[in-house]
Amino acid sequence: MMRKLQTIGFDADDTLWHNERFFKLTQERFEELLSDYTDKSLLHDRLIQAERRNIGHYGFGVKGFVLSMIETAIDVTEGAVPGHVIRNILDAGQDMLAHPIELLPHVQTTVETLAQSHRLVLITKGDLLHQERKLAQSGLGELFDDVAIVSEKSVETYQTVFGRHSGGVAAAMMVGNSMKSDVVPAVTAGSWGVFVPHDLEWDLEKAEPPKNPRFLEIADLGDLPSLVADIG
């Protein structure tokens, strides 16, 4: 009998390894650099607005984040931001790009276990070179049958990626920490969507959970093998 579930897709950042905490630390550094020019809460709001505007231009990832910080610094200082502040922002971005990969709990065991029985696909947003480097450093690369680094995760993304594997979207599952990017569009496409909450959540990735029997939630990736076994 053919399995109900044949392909399992995984998000990368903050699902397999730590990511958002480095953005938060850099944002705190950014706020300190500009503390003489504007209030912290105002700066946070202005940065989020810049990120939202710029996603279509720069995409997701560190480079777009750095450019949004520079734009915000110029705006809140009315063009008076000192050169050394820009230099510090650039240095912070380079530190983020060079940061070593640290897997989240249960990731190694879970991915190794499921790779023995299912087709695994990595589906992640962000800068191509940076995401490739992180995957290589994670030690998980050889466990995935397919890797898709995309500019956005939409219904069409999951239809395309899962559609190139036997069983298509109906026999696929997407696992991730973003309700907006990993769960809602995957479930809408017809696959299972498994939400794995992370302590840190980017404001632009928040969304309401779908009202669909194919929406599932687990506490951490250690619970995923038993969930997969229950589906069959």
Rank of each mutant, 00 (worst) to 15 (best):
Thr15Tyr: 00
Thr157Arg: 08
Phe162Gly: 00
Gly59Asn: 09
Val121Glu: 06
His198Cys: 12
Leu120Glu: 11
Ile149Gly: 05
Ser166Ala: 15
Leu67Val: 00
Gly59Met: 10
Thr77Arg: 11
Gln6Asn: 14
Asn212Val: 13
Ala12Gln: 02
Ala171Lys: 10
Ala229Ser: 15
Asn88Leu: 11
Val62Ser: 02
His130Glu: 15
Met174Glu: 02
Glu112His: 13
Gly167Lys: 05
Thr77Leu: 09
Pro213Leu: 07
Leu5Asp: 06
Leu135Glu: 07
Asp14Asn: 12
Ile101Ser: 06
Ala80Arg: 14
Thr15Ala: 06
Arg119Asp: 13
Ala229Phe: 08
Ile218Leu: 10
Leu16Ile: 02
Trp192Pro: 02
Ala171Phe: 00
Ala50Trp: 02
Val194His: 06
Val76Trp: 07
Gln159Cys: 11
Trp192His: 09
Pro225Ile: 08
Gly141Gln: 15
Glu205Asn: 14
Asp223Leu: 11
Val147Met: 07
Gly139His: 03
Leu120Ala: 12
Leu47Thr: 06
Glu217Asp: 09
Leu34Met: 10
Thr7Ile: 07
Pro210Cys: 08
Gly126Phe: 05
Leu128Pro: 01
Gly139Asp: 06
Leu128Ile: 13
Pro100Arg: 10
Val183Leu: 05
Leu104Ala: 10
Val147Phe: 06
Met174Asn: 06
Gly61Val: 07
Val121Leu: 13
Val183Ala: 05
Gln159Glu: 13
Lys206Gly: 01
Asp36Gly: 00
Gly163Thr: 07
Glu20Gly: 04
Asn212Ile: 12
Thr188Pro: 00
Glu217Gln: 15
Glu217Val: 15
Lys134Val: 00
Ile70Gln: 08
Asp127Ser: 12
Ser151Lys: 14
Asn177Phe: 04
Ala186Ser: 07
Leu135Gln: 06
Asp14Phe: 00
Pro185Thr: 04
Ala172Thr: 03
Phe60Cys: 04
Ala115Glu: 09
Leu204Thr: 09
Arg46Ile: 03
Phe162Ser: 01
Phe162Pro: 01
Val111Tyr: 01
Gly168Trp: 02
Arg21Lys: 15
Arg29Cys: 09
His118Trp: 12
Asp13Glu: 05
His118Thr: 13
Thr72Met: 10
Thr26Val: 10
Lys63Ser: 10
Val187Pro: 01
Leu5His: 04
Ser138Tyr: 11
Pro209Asp: 13
Lys125Pro: 04
Ala170His: 13
